[in-house]
């Protein structure tokens, strides 16, 4: 079974593509099924005593992901790449925030983008239209990005030194929280059209994030949401969160976000 998508075959695993590449290329994700060999070698060593042996493992289940995340982090540090992992539920405006940020800052800062979605190159094409180097990871049935996908994607993207790498995770407020990609900062995005109690409904994501962007503030006059209540819920989950209140549509509040980005890349 495929380790990423859970399908019976290997054909639905993640694909890593640049805009314009053929959609049905597989094989970037290596399926390590090397342990599936059966011990049918000549000398049959089956003892009939059936001796049970207890192996004390004490191993973290996510260790493999964490080791590769640490490798990514070292790579970013060596090349002075500031990497952000953007997480949110679908439709909160991750791609729109990215588009606006890239359009406004691309003459000052070199950007690279990794897009994560279950299907389609749509988001990568939106970024590509801004002439920013981008690569799309399609996770198939997978609900989150993992550090090995980033490791492969970064190599293919050929990220240069002193740049910002934006990783847009799969739109999902649950699963990506458990998977460290090696990013410098995790940015959770919530829009004003979502409920103010979302931080305590999905606490793990807010607990593991460093930055919280509240998007679509231009819609506030039409909504019943209490922003202070939302922030208090978020701070209850993670008292260290730093907030930016923005509208990717009107550009309101983007300056503070830009200032923070620039401060971190230099």
């Amino acid at each position: 079974m495929c380790g990423t998508c859970g399908c019976g075959s290997d054909s639905n695993g993640p694909t890593i593509l640049k805009p314009g590449e053929h959609e049905h290329v597989h094989g970037e994700h290596t399926h390590s099924h090397e342990n599936h060999h059966h011990h049918h070698d000549g000398h049959h060593t089956h003892e009939h005593s059936h001796k049970h042996k207890v192996l004390e493992i004490e191993q973290d289940i996510l260790q493999n992901n964490q080791v590769l995340a640490a490798r990514n982090r070292g790579y970013f540090e060596a090349k002075n790449i500031f990497s952000l992992n953007l997480v949110s539920s679908p439709g909160s405006g991750k791609t729109s925030i990215l588009e606006r940020t890239l359009a406004d800052l691309k003459d000052e800062i070199p950007f690279y983008v990794i897009e994560g979605d279950q299907q389609t190159l749509n988001d990568a094409n939106r970024i590509d239209a801004l002439n920013i180097p981008v690569i799309q990871i399609n996770t198939g049935k997978g609900c989150h990005l993992e550090s090995d996908m980033i490791f492969d994607a970064v190599k293919k993207l050929d990220v240069k030194n002193d740049a910002i790498l934006m990783i847009e995770n799969v739109g999902n407020l649950v699963c990506p929280s458990m998977f460290d990609l090696g990013e410098n900062k995790r940015v959770v995005i919530i829009s004003t059209t979502e409920g103010e109690d979302k931080p305590i409904k999905y606490p793990d994501m807010f607990h593991t994030s460093d930055i919280c962007i509240i998007n679509k503030i231009d819609l506030l006059p039409y909504l019943n949401i209490d922003i202070d209540k939302l922030k208090n819920y978020a701070l209850q989950v993670n008292p260290n969160l730093q907030f930016f209140e923005i509208s990717a549509t009107t550009g309101e509040g983007m300056d503070a976000w830009y200032k923070w980005l620039k401060k971190n890349v230099i």
């Binding site: 859970g6 342990n35 192996l55 289940i61 996510l62 493999n64 998977f179």
Partner: peptide
Amino acid sequence: MHELSIALGIVKISEDETAKAK
């Protein structure tokens, strides 16, 4: 459903350790 990734992580560790212990 990240539990599937977790379950497969458990399988991977078990495969590796079982092989190591012959």
